[in-house]
């Protein structure tokens, strides 16, 4: 490679490294704002701002869902395995919403630490399978093992 081309290439690489460093520092500083939601552990540790609109995300705890009899209000608990956050929501839940499903709820924390949500989104995972396979796995009680196994291989 002749010296002029080499020099140009070095300049380009230097510019690119500078931009990467700038963006990396910026994103690290904004880390908390880029996260779409707070996990129940973060909320329990008081990392989530009080009174502001926040998103809480986690898995809907098995057996925690209660529907009101005379309105669309639903109460449920999301968990990340370590901590739980109660959520109250009034409205129509997305199709994928069920116990054990990952969800993200947007709303304000009240003084009891319950999130009064005005939007609930279902979070889909990266695993896809045909219905026959999932029902067969469910029958033998292997579905959970399968999903855990998938999570392990994806790490």
């Amino acid at each position: 490679m002749n010296p002029i081309r080499k020099k140009r290439l070095i300049i380009i690489v230097a510019i690119l490294l500078g931009v990467i460093a700038t963006v990396a520092l910026g994103l690290t500083a904004l880390q908390q704002n880029i996260n779409l939601f707070y996990t129940p552990t973060q909320i329990a540790n008081g990392e989530a701002p009080q009174g502001a609109r926040i998103r809480a995300g986690g898995l809907v705890k098995e057996g925690s869902l209660t529907r009101s009899e005379d309105s669309l209000t639903v109460d449920f608990v999301v968990t990340d395995g370590d901590a739980d956050t109660g959520i109250q929501y009034r409205g129509i839940l997305p199709d994928l919403f069920r116990e054990g499903q990952g969800i993200v709820a947007l709303g304000r924390l009240n003084d009891k630490g319950v999130l009064i949500a005005d939007e609930v989104l279902a979070k889909h995972d990266e695993n896809y399978m045909p219905p026959e396979v999932s029902s067969a796995l469910e029958k033998t009680g292997m579905l959970k093992n399968y999903q855990d196994g998938q999570k392990e291989t994806n790490k």
Binding site: I34, N35, L36, L93, P94, D95, L96, E119, V120, L121, A122, K123, H124
Partner: peptide
């Protein structure tokens, strides 16, 4: 829209 329940989310 059908899966999450929203057309757009300001996700990373």
């Amino acid at each position: 829209k059908p899966t999450w329940g929203a057309w757009w989310v300001w996700d990373a």
